[in-house]
């Protein structure tokens, strides 16, 4: 039965159900067990995001706090994954990948290929991305394109509570390293989520909305931004088809191409900065594989090529919004040779 719960609760439920089902699943990260060694209440925090709250008491010994040593504990999660555990490590903010990137991209990502197919590294690295909380340049980036760039990593960007739960369970069961990117402004977003365990397969995009006029591919939180734009556009007679790729690696190319073959027009909405991001990647795919179907130039709606500014006045201009998406859709819809 589905109930309405938050993105945070959906993730917590996915972790709990998988820990219940499979003893080899462990959870680790800064304050994930609530703050080790502190004199007050146990499990006070559940990670800074509150996603792991309650797991510490339910699964004794399987929720570990860590010192602030990302290289060591993310690397430890990766090492443990090669030896029979299925660790879910929390790299609090995606920006902190800078501290531990070697363990992720030179170690975890490479093992299977480098070792001739002999390694399995079923680790999940949960991390929050995105702007909107006035958290400034080192706590707001949308860095999933960097992980997407690396062969050997799978990259998940869930766009709703329903997606978050199913994709998290799939991530834990998947036997490759998975970077699971949660948008920090979405933890309190609510939606219908089944109580029972379920998985959403990787590499299968979700067609969020059908429409014949323009294809809009949107990543993560940008899916809801695109939906907002679509509602407004519909009143002026433009029907948008919204595609949520769910995973940027693997990427469901087929669903995107099929949609563009029908609409002939593409807008990609990506919160990342504009160079070498998902917008350029998907645009290149479509330009190459569906060139003959295109009836207008492709539009990309992205952040500008700058760090994320602090001031609300600037951050609100930085983040792609429904107005910018609507403008891009109108410009491709109205384009004539």
């Amino acid at each position: 039965m589905a109930r309405t719960i938050s993105y945070r609760e959906a993730l917590n439920e996915a972790l709990a159900q998988e820990m219940e089902r499979d003893e080899s699943v462990i959870v680790l990260g800064e304050d994930n067990a609530g703050g080790a060694g502190s004199p007050g209440e146990d499990d006070a925090w559940g990670g800074v995001l509150g996603v792991t709250k309650g797991l510490y008491h339910r699964f004794p010994g399987r929720v570990l706090d860590t010192p602030i040593s990302e290289s060591a504990f993310v690397g430890a999660a990766i090492g443990a994954a090669t030896r029979g555990l299925r660790p879910v490590a929390e790299l609090m903010f995606i920006d902190f990948m800078g501290v531990c990137f070697d363990q992720i991209f030179n170690q975890a990502a490479k093992f299977r290929y480098m070792f001739g197919g002999k390694a399995e590294t079923p680790v999940v690295i949960r991390t929050m991305y995105g702007a909107g909380l006035r958290a400034a340049a080192q706590h707001s980036q949308a860095l999933y394109p960097i992980f997407t760039h690396i062969p050997g990593l799978k990259v998940v960007v869930p766009s709703s509570p329903y997606e978050a739960k199913g994709l998290m369970i799939q991530s834990i069961r998947d036997s490759d390293p998975v970077i699971f990117c949660e948008h920090k402004a979405m933890y309190d977003t609510t939606g219908d989520v089944p109580e029972d365990s379920y998985t959403i397969p990787f590499g299968e995009a979700n067609v969020v909305r059908d429409g014949d006029d323009v294809t809009v591919v949107a990543i993560g939180r940008m899916v809801s931004v695109a939906e907002e734009a679509a509602r407004e556009l519909s009143t002026s007679g433009i029907e948008v088809e919204i595609i949520d790729p769910r995973t940027t690696s693997p990427l469901d190319e087929e669903t995107i191409l099929e949609s563009v073959e029908n609409t002939g027009r593409l807008v990609v909405v990506d919160e990342a900065t504009p160079r070498c991001n998902l917008a350029t990647d998907i645009s290149a795919l479509v330009a190459k594989e569906a060139f003959g179907s295109l009836r207008a130039p492709i539009e990309m709606v992205t952040a500008p090529h700058t760090p994320v500014p602090f001031s609300d006045a600037l951050e609100d201009l930085y983040i792609p919004d429904a107005q910018r998406v609507a403008n891009a859709v109108k410009s491709v819809a109205g384009w004539t040779r």
């Binding site: 800064e30 304050d31 609530g34 703050g35 080790a36 060694g37 502190s38 004199p39 006070a44 925090w45 800074v48 706090d65 010192p67 602030i68």
Partner: peptide, 12 residues
């Protein structure tokens, strides 16, 4: 004494 909620007597 603390890093967020974690005690330095534990983490160090």
């Amino acid at each position: 004494g603390y890093a967020e909620a974690t005690s330095s007597s534990w983490s160090v």
